[in-house]
Amino acid sequence: MSTQAPDQKVPLEAMQRQEPRRTRSRAAKRWAKLPVHLLIALLLVVVLYPLLWLVLGSFKTQQEFLNDPVWSLPGSFNFDNYVEAWTTGNLAVFVANSLMATLPSLALIIVFGVAAGFALEVMVWKGRNGVLLIFLTGIMVPGQMILLPLFSAYFNTGLTGTLWPLIITYTATGLPLTVFMMATYFRAVPREVFEASTLDGASIIRSFISIGFPMVRNAVFTVALVQFFFIWNDLLIALTFANNSDLSTIQVGLLNFTGQFGTVQYGPLFAAICLNVFGTLAIYLFLNQRIMKGLAAGSVKG
């Protein structure tokens, strides 16, 4: 998009410049734009300054926090707070737990969800609309509705005390949206493609693996990212099934973070928030283009 923009703009601007009845001078035009620029500047300050404040805070010592004004710069940029948070604050354990809960559930969500979306949209059978509707209701039901029975079930089967309850619950709660979004994406693939592969003698499973899945690869990628953020940022399920410091995910760990130190240790806390915030931000920035496109396309078509 950005590469096309300049080409399109040049002739337009050239046309405007040649227009004879143009009364406003350039300076006046610039003044007219001032409110817009101020508005954008204000917007950026509101969005970005808290994050900047967070970064600066993560380098300050406890003394600087208590004695200096809040907008002062830290005396030196060293990573003591980060080391403290990572080791004494157990952040390393929390991050490992989060990864061990998130990645397996993400893989299961994608494999199950894409296959189900394919079965619901491409395959022809009675009752598929009903099944899709059943999946849809799952998007609306709040997590609180399933917490207690699951807690009893995990308790009785002895899964409590491991990360399995998290993996199982995340997989199930991630499925409705994934199935729904994948069904929507498969709707956009022309049916002729699968009819042709069937005529060529491919079984439906073969069609799914060699044609269906590769054709919606970008959509799969988008859905995976959305689900990653949902699971990674979840608090309710993690708080219910892994509320013990060995199993804490990063969000639960962060919530109880001040407890680790007794009194509030601002530096390590800011460093821990910072790691959490900029870790996710880095993933987002790295994959920005795709997630934006995917989010927009998926939500509007749905």
Binding site: V111, A115, F118, A119, P149, F208
Partner: peptide, 19 residues
Amino acid sequence: LIILLGPALLVYTLVMLVP
């Protein structure tokens, strides 16, 4: 159909609908 839809429906039923 069972191979493709089965796992998702099974997990969804056991972990969401039944609860």
